[in-house]
Design a protein around this nucleic acid. Structure first.
Lengths: 184, 184
DNA sequence: GACGATGTAGAGCGATTGTTCTACTTGTGC
DNA sequence: GCACAAGTAGAACAATCGCTCTACATCGTC
């Protein structure tokens, strides 16, 4: 079952949500058409199963064993996301892609929102930026979406933005040296 | 011709790139199938024509008559993008959506890159953030992509990030208000 | 007022789609 | 050794797709 989900995920990640036919998906899942339809009774369900699988893998990859310190966690977060982009996808966020391909599918929208809000929650918690959750999430989205164009420079850029955000978070004329003084 | 392009653009924006059939697109364009195929000899071309039209409209909406001052231009930029999101689309960037729906179409990728690089160029020029073009672009992407979830708060968040970026751009206790002295 | 370019309306084409169904094989517990 | 659940391979289905084509209407220009 998770093998099926993994196959579906990689097929959609590689070829998008519009192109692959159910027979393509069957090949990617490595099972027969009948078994595929048993676990995913429609193509829509195949999409959802793939996204749920990706959601779990993404959270694992990005958030497991982050450094404890807020500053280190922030840097590591962007590093991990950059690595994810490099390894797992050549374009932007798969959840946005799924919704964009099928804008009036409400189940997909719900999946997207659940994914994003969980990422936001955990990112804010790990970096101590709970008061700037929206801005943090925007940096993450910016990194994810701009990675195909800028590659590693996107990771560096996100780190700069993250550092600037941290500095803005705890303002004051004499900041106690805590964070990064100058932009990598 | 531009009426056809406008119709195609709005059809793809409303329903995504996978769903609408050529007959749907014909209805949206308001011409006959034959005329449609005369100006757009394949469905792929219809997509490209729609994107080119959107590119022009986006640049017009976002960059025409921006305030002269760098700081005011930065704020106005985010304001305009937020307004664009509210009026023109309920989900993220249409160019990313097109590429995501059809990841191995190289013409689409080229169109996406051209669009983004022109936006980056003009945004950096108008705001005096040429030395932080990647970061600025990431804030724009973050705003665009997170708008469906956060609505107006996304605009506010982008403004915060923009302000933090400006502050980081001209460091030092007494900044002489110029532009980017350090860190190309 | 005739003419060619340009438009509309819509039937028709082969190919492909998502989904279902039949017929056969395999593994496991009693 | 046998029944039963769960698998494979792939034929078959109606529906829909992108695209082409025919037949007819409308227009501006000489």
């Amino acid at each position: 079952m998770t093998r099926i989900a993994a196959g579906l995920e990689s097929a959609f990640a590689r070829r998008g949500f519009a192109v692959p036919s159910v027979e393509d998906l069957r090949d990617a899942a490595g099972v027969s058409l009948r078994t595929l339809y048993k676990y995913a009774p429609s193509r829509d369900r195949m999409v959802r199963i793939a996204l749920e699988h990706r959601h779990r893998r993404y959270l694992d990859h990005v958030f497991s064993d982050l450094p404890m310190g807020h500053e280190a966690a922030l840097d590591a977060l962007f590093e991990r996301i950059g690595l994810w982009m490099e390894r797992e996808t050549s374009h932007g966020c798969l959840f946005h892609a799924a919704v964009a391909a099928n804008p009036d599918n409400n189940e997909l929208k719900a999946l997207l929102e659940r994914h994003k809000s969980e990422v936001a929650e955990r990112a804010a918690g790990a970096t101590g930026l709970s008061g700037r959750k929206i801005e943090l999430m925007q940096v993450i989205e910016g990194l994810t979406q701009s990675w195909p164009l800028y590659r590693e420079r996107a990771t560096t850029g996100a780190r700069h933005l993250g550092a600037a955000l941290r500095r803005a978070e705890v303002p004051g004329p004499f900041d106690a040296r805590t964070s990064s003084p100058s932009l990598t």
